[in-house]
Design a protein around this nucleic acid. Sequence first.
DNA 1: TAATTCCTGAGCTGCATAGTCAGGATTTAG
DNA 2: CTAAATCCTGACTATGCAGCTCAGGAATTA
Lengths: 160, 160
Amino acid sequence: MKLSTKSRYAVTAMLDLAIHDKIGPVTLADISQSQGISLSYLEQLFAKLRKNGLVEGVRGPGGGYRLSRPSDEITVARIITAVDENVTMTRCAGKGTCQDGERCLTHQLWDDLSEQLYSFLDGITLDQFSNRPEVQQVAQRQDAQHQRAHHHFIFRRTAA
Amino acid sequence: MKLSTKSRYAVTAMLDLAIHDKIGPVTLADISQSQGISLSYLEQLFAKLRKNGLVEGVRGPGGGYRLSRPSDEITVARIITAVDENVTMTRCAGKGTCQDGERCLTHQLWDDLSEQLYSFLDGITLDQFSNRPEVQQVAQRQDAQHQRAHHHFIFRRTAA
DNA sequence: TAATTCCTGAGCTGCATAGTCAGGATTTAG
DNA sequence: CTAAATCCTGACTATGCAGCTCAGGAATTA
């Protein structure tokens, strides 16, 4: 379990997807602009998220990324481990293979704590954030703007 | 909230102190050897722990570091923030000062999550680990060895 | 006085983070 | 069918920071 800027980028980007899930795929260019993360870096992160089955890409015009499952099945823990796949932090991985007895003792305790932390974050899903009333409000306002600006094919489709 | 090797070192070192609290101060040299962390790096970490009132140093022969409060008052969260004092991770710190509305929204959600995480780790104290029966056993065995090896003044003291 | 330990600060190295660049693959719009 | 939009991939670069070294000073005790 590791927590860095990288993890934060991944989580906030996924939140972005969850918030705008209804209007279809979100482009990385949009996320890059709205959150101030470089496009290519986002592409690296999303490559990992895709490999871990958390998102799926839609190619071509009007494409982008969307969540590959409902937002109540995607936990923060899974997002973090997807981008930071460096899992085992202690050398002996709590197995007791260290030479010194004491080192292993503290390693074991750490791994235990690490697991508690994972369980905690594995209980937090994206929809716990995206379903809040304030969030919904802002999202609707932004989605409307978005439609006016770019995708008038959506407008036509809903009008038809 | 940030979680790295640095934080892990700090937490495991503090666990070491908590485990051997009874026999008095623990030297950084001991921790360095038993946990495989360089002495000078430990000194840097403990400088921060001391500034944050979590440990106190005892100089001179027979000295070392000890917890500055009972182990049930020291939480994992406080240890981590002590060594990683880079607190505000989002630019606007969840205040809503970002230009773009959306960036602020996700920043706010992240800060919210970060706070949840802090509360969780702030509920985990050192004594929850050091008071376990297995830990107590190992500690006693190690403390006995320690006395035989180095500090025979303690032996004399207890024998007198 | 000498040994032990904390304590401080400056400086080094390697790796991960964060970003750039260039180009290809796939889909949709026109 | 062509062109645009977008995902997708891989290689490359720079910067920061984790982790460590070195050198020395201050306080305490034997």
